Simulated scan of single mutants.
Amino acid sequence: MEITSDSALIPCRINANTLLFAQWKTELLYIAARKRRFRRIRNGGIDHPHARVIPIIFDRLESLQYKIRAEPAREPLDLILMTRDNFLSLALTEHFFKYQRTHVCATLDEAEKLLNRSPQPRMLIDLDGVNVAAIDVLNTIRQWQKTWPQLNVMQFTACRCMNVVMLIDAASDFPVVERRQRMPELHNALVQKQHVQRLVLTQKFAPAAPLSSREWNILLAVAKGESLKSIARSFGKPYHYVVYTLGRVAARVGLKNNKELIHLLNRLTCPLAGKE
């Protein structure tokens, strides 16, 4: 009977240990690869800010999952608030419209992009809280009214000058609300219907009749600083027609003459924020 020495068994033991180590290392690498793939899918794909390794190739299923996560379905908005006044936006979003999907924006372009959604949300415009000329805001509102006849817009302004308020009210069919009210009164004004809001707005003055397209275009030209003669030539009308139109609009908004109307239009060419 032959006796095998321990020196002969050493190479076999080394080969077996090497094989077990290789299998164990392969399993660890496979598990690590699966964990990295799981983290990449869970974190939203290759553009996740915490991803350190960007895979060059990934399968179609991962690509579809990335597109779904990167472009989630947008829920329709209930309210658009256009203002730069943080106090007003906080009061409206946290108290009056706390349970509604509200988006606060500060520019007309951003608001118009949101209005293109369907269904169209309700919109509140703070004329005193935007860095845009009031005449430009009113002109944009008139265009929106033609594009979206069912649009629901409310305009906030500090009613310091009732002539300004009456002109704003006549520029469109949308109601104007005094922004310097107590919370209960402001809440009542926001939930009432448009014709009731107009009665609350005017208080002592009857609402002015809406301005026609030609009347508004003449007012825009005057606000831009054009002379009455050049306005008459551009519209193909005699000079006295432009003078008569301005006088009719001035009387409609409670002014005495055309000179006061021109001064009023000059005020509207600047943002109303901070104006007394």
Rank of each mutant, 00 (worst) to 15 (best):
P49I: 06
H48F: 13
I31H: 08
L19Y: 06
K25Q: 13
I46G: 04
A32V: 03
A32I: 02
A33G: 04
D47Q: 07
I56Q: 10
Y30L: 06
G45E: 00
E27G: 14
I54N: 10
D47Y: 03
R36G: 01
T26H: 10
L20V: 09
Y30W: 05
G44A: 05
V53F: 11
D47K: 03
I57P: 00
P55W: 01
A32F: 02
H48G: 06
F21T: 09
G45I: 00
P49V: 04
P55L: 02
I41D: 01
A22E: 04
R37E: 11
L28T: 09
R39E: 05
R40D: 00
H48Y: 10
K25S: 09
G44V: 00
E27P: 02
R52C: 11
I56Y: 06
I41T: 08
K35F: 15
H48C: 15
L29W: 03
V53C: 13
R52H: 12
L28K: 14
H50E: 14
I54P: 02
H50V: 13
D47T: 14
R42Q: 09
F21G: 07
F38W: 08
L19T: 14
I46Q: 11
P55N: 05
L29N: 09
L20G: 06
H50Q: 12
T26M: 12
G45N: 00
L19P: 09
I31C: 08
H50Y: 11
F58N: 07
R39K: 06
I46L: 14
L20Q: 07
T26G: 13
G44M: 01
I31E: 05
W24N: 12
R42P: 04
A33I: 00
G44D: 01
I54L: 10
A51M: 12
L28E: 05
P49T: 07
I56C: 12
R36P: 01
F21V: 11
E27F: 14
R36A: 07
G45S: 02
V53Q: 15
G45H: 00
F58P: 01
L20W: 03
P55Y: 01
L20K: 07
D47M: 04
D47V: 07
Y30E: 04
R42A: 15
Q23H: 12
R34G: 00
P55D: 05
R40Y: 01
I31W: 06
Q23W: 07
R37I: 03
I46F: 05
N43P: 04
G44F: 01
R39G: 02
N43Y: 04
R40I: 00
I57E: 12
R36W: 01
E27I: 07
W24A: 15
A51D: 10
G45A: 01
K25W: 08
K35Y: 12
G44Y: 00
H50D: 14
E27A: 14
L19V: 09
F38C: 13
K35V: 15
F21W: 06
K35S: 15
D47N: 13
D47P: 03
I54S: 14
D47H: 08
R52S: 13
L28N: 09
H50S: 14
A22Y: 03
R42I: 14
K25D: 08
L19G: 11
Y30T: 02
T26N: 10
G44L: 04
G44N: 00
K35G: 11
E27S: 13
G45C: 01
A32T: 04
A22C: 08
A32Y: 02
K25V: 09
A22F: 03
H48A: 15
A51R: 03
L28M: 14
R34E: 01
V53M: 10
R36V: 02
A22H: 05
I46D: 15
